[in-house]
Amino acid sequence: MLAGRKILLIIGGGIAAYKSIELMRLLRKAGAGVVPVLTRAGSEFVTPLTVSAIAGTRVQGELFDLTAEAEMGHIELSRSADLVVVAPATADLMAKLASGLANDLASTLLLATDKRVLLAPAMNVRMWEHPATQRNLETLRGFGTLVVGPDAGEMACGEFGPGRMAEPPAILAAIDAALTTDTALAGRHVIVTSGPTHEPIDPVRYIANRSSGRQGTAIAEALVRRGARVTFVTGPATAPRPLGCEIREVETAREMLAAVEAALPADAAIFAAAVADWRVAAETRSKIKKQPGAEPAPLTLTENPDILKTISRREMSRPGLVVGFAAETDDVLANATAKRLRKGCDWLVANDVRPETGIMGGSHTAVTLITDAGAEDWPAMSKDETADRLAARVAEALA
């Protein structure tokens, strides 16, 4: 899909800029044209001469270039590309884009483009984990910005953790995916559930699960990219809602089940939501007060409807493919295999969510896909990559 495509490559100021040289080589080998934009900080790590030689064209870097700007060069650059790629995407560039700042050529191009933007973040682990960077990341995802990586590993600074820029072959694959016009799911309707549910105890308290909704959002977007019509049923998740979907907001498990049933019929249903298993039998209309010297107010719990099992065992309007998720902390494979049989779903995606894995609410995951054919371990990857792989398997199954 890359032959004849034009990539606008913005090279940010980080040690990972050296990888952009290899990325340009791979792009040109695949038949793509590359227009490089080197930030002032980026030129501290790779020289304009090297970048120009590998790209085979002039390096862009100055916003106030008299000749270029006489023809509104920054607008032309931003619109003539098929895709804008930022590699490395530094914390500074991400913050500028999230905030709408444009004080140099790179940031101006990112605001002026009408094409999709793919970021390959690269920074120190503490910078990546800082709440400001994570807030900016969520904002950018909400804009529809694509993200590949970062990987976890040893940093140039000697620290270890997430923040390493994805390797050039992985970025190349993400570029190819972003430019692929896939109609494998055209005409298909898929229901995706996402996020937690909140089960009220009183007007200010509730029972919930630790779910950000990131995986469900990524799955919905991957299905939309393949041409599917997606009904996205979400609890009160912190993740941005996916673009191109019909969004149905719910709060409780009972509301989620009702929304799913109302969305039927569907060709497939993917239940990625972390649904609370129990709710309070009798929600109080007033806040429960602590009474000095008194025992805590007892809470009588009752079981919530089992959404996955209910849909899997429907006799009428059952989706042709039902996919469940299992977040497990012990004996992951055994428990997830038993759950698939107990629920009656076709596939079950299992992951280990012990606190030390950092998966619950994080940006990466490692899952096992369980089907009638057995268990298939997938390598650790970003939730976007996991979603894309799952969507491709759904397309194959429905074909």
Rank of each mutant, 00 (worst) to 15 (best):
L185F: 06
A186C: 04
G227I: 12
R248F: 04
M155W: 12
A266E: 09
A222E: 02
I175V: 14
A269S: 05
I171Q: 02
E221G: 08
A258Y: 03
A237F: 05
A274D: 07
T193R: 14
V230G: 01
R188A: 01
T197W: 14
A218P: 01
A239T: 00
P169L: 10
E221H: 05
C157D: 15
P203K: 13
V280G: 10
L179V: 13
V190T: 09
R205Y: 06
V192Y: 03
D267C: 08
G187L: 13
A268S: 09
V224M: 11
A266K: 14
S212G: 00
A186Y: 00
V260R: 09
A218V: 01
D151V: 01
V250Q: 05
A262N: 14
I175S: 05
T252N: 13
R254H: 11
A173R: 14
P240V: 05
E246N: 10
M256P: 07
F160Y: 14
P196T: 08
V190Q: 14
S194K: 04
V147S: 01
V148H: 10
A268Q: 11
R248E: 09
G153P: 06
G213K: 05
T181G: 09
R164H: 05
D151A: 11
V260N: 03
T180D: 11
E251D: 03
A156I: 07
P203I: 10
A239K: 07
T252P: 08
R188C: 03
R210A: 07
A273R: 11
V230S: 03
R164K: 13
E261M: 12
D182N: 13
A152V: 05
W278H: 14
G244T: 02
R248S: 09
A263M: 13
A220Y: 02
F232V: 02
L264T: 03
I270N: 00
L179D: 08
F271I: 07
G153W: 08
E159R: 03
A273S: 11
H198N: 13
I201K: 14
A166Q: 04
A237N: 03
P169N: 07
A184G: 09
A263E: 10
A253L: 07
I270D: 00
G213R: 04
V233A: 08
